[in-house]
Write a protein that binds this DNA or RNA. Structure first.
Lengths: 251, 251
DNA sequence: CGACTTTTTGAGTCTAGTCAAAACATGTGG
DNA sequence: CCACATGTTTTGACTAGACTCAAAAAGTCG
């Protein structure tokens, strides 16, 4: 059978994307800034610096001192934690408009995860001190940030639950659904996950191994629930995947 | 062999513990209020209501609307998530002075976990609206809350990592260490975990089963690392447990 | 077209889960 | 204070899901 070639279309980092206009747009869309007037956004923007990173480059390492708060302007970033063994655990994948880094309000602290560019990216960063100043100037922002962090806590706890109680098959199904919800794009019959990610990554997200992920994906493929290839996946039958993620076996 | 009888000494909920004095002490010690002057604490205290709950009683359920923020004044509270199957996942155990409930700043939201009294407790609660008012009146508090939540996110991610990459043995070892760090009390040679918790609870914390936990605990017991009985555990050899939690096998 | 990476497949093993039953601890009421 | 009822923990035998190691197959890129 002729597999379709990779249908991914990556957003290339074009030098213009970190233009002033684009920066203002990204910053102004952040959940914790979007309620602010344009002039405030503009002033906040001045506190950010941008830089480009290419695929697989590390933005910071677990254990580094947390001196900045980061913002994905363009591209995708993954957050991983390393274990003593060579296995890595993938905590989250972020797209344009999401923040990352450690929220160091007062005092110093340390990054608890490593941030890796999953694609070529444009990253905005603001120093902890500047961010504190912004929080002081715009008290509402602090609340919004609080909401955003609370949200992530809830998501993380959901993952704890899944890892505790679900089979690998269920975990893979829900990881795919989560990614599709976040990064999915309609493509013909199915939903393409707009992100180059390998079996390796999927294994790191679900606490499994590449081999097992491969086997499960093959099963999903045979059952017509997904189509996949080297570093891409399209979900063909969401409802069935959802059922499987919740109930276990497909009946 | 004659096992020591349960060495747990529970703090009984004495009607006096929720006295004004005690309430002020608990509220004033909260990480996000402790920098405030006494009169502010006193005013904040007026917004809290207290009530007692007995062991195993539910304080709220997963899915309930989040209308209050809660505070453990006395006793221990566990947070669990239910899965479709009868298995429950234990997310955290809280002691006096810790907060729980969903931080609903603006808008309504829903509890994502169930809160159960692990011992008889005295609980303080404040309505979301009141809490918002407090946040508005004392902007510093919002930042402190933000730090507290960030901290929990980090802890939750640590658990994700453990569940993803460690064996049951390692997870049990680190769950014990975590509990000891939080609720431990020196007792002769060892550290007693001051909390009545069953193999069931430990299984729910580590994504395992009572039988497996029992087997692992027996092994730990034979190796002289812990002593345990019905609903109690004393850690006898921290360093060895720590080594096991990190590296795997004990050499 | 190669060289390289990623994915798939296979065989063997082991950790941890399931089911079932016995042993033990705890609190109660006689 | 003992015997019983109840809930908890332990033990045993069996099973299965998922991991490991190893090697082949398929994509991708220069």
């Amino acid at each position: 059978m002729v597999r379709p070639k990779s249908p991914l279309r990556l957003d290339w980092v074009d030098p213009t994307v970190c233009s002033l206009d684009y920066r203002l747009k990204i910053i102004g869309r952040l959940p914790f800034f979007k309620h602010l007037p344009a002039d405030a956004i503009s002033k906040i923007n001045d506190r950010f610096h941008d830089h480009e990173v290419s695929t697989d480059e590390r933005i910071y390492f677990e254990g580094d001192e947390a001196e900045y708060l980061y913002l994905v302007a363009m591209g995708k970033v993954k957050l991983v934690r390393n274990t003593d063994s060579r296995r890595e655990v993938l905590l989250d994948i972020l797209r344009g408009g999401e923040y990352f880094g450690t929220l160091t309000v007062f005092g110093r602290s340390i990054h608890t995860e490593t941030a890796i560019a999953q694609t070529d990216c444009c990253i905005l960063q603001i120093s902890s001190e500047s961010f504190e100043t912004v929080l002081t100037e715009y008290p509402d922002v602090t609340r919004k940030v609080l909401e955003a962090v609370s949200q992530r806590l809830t998501e993380s706890q959901e993952i704890v639950k899944q890892l505790s109680a679900y089979t690998v098959e269920q975990r893979i199904a829900s990881a795919l659904l989560r990614l599709a919800g976040k990064l999915g794009e309609a493509r013909g019959q199915g939903v393409l996950i707009q992100l180059p990610f390998s079996r390796q990554d999927l294994a790191a997200m679900t606490g499994s191994t590449t081999e097992t992920v491969s086997r499960v994906m093959s099963r999903f493929g045979e059952a017509g629930m997904v189509k996949s290839g080297r570093k891409w996946v399209t979900i063909m039958d969401m409802p069935r995947l959802e059922k499987l993620a919740e109930k276990g076996a497909v009946n």
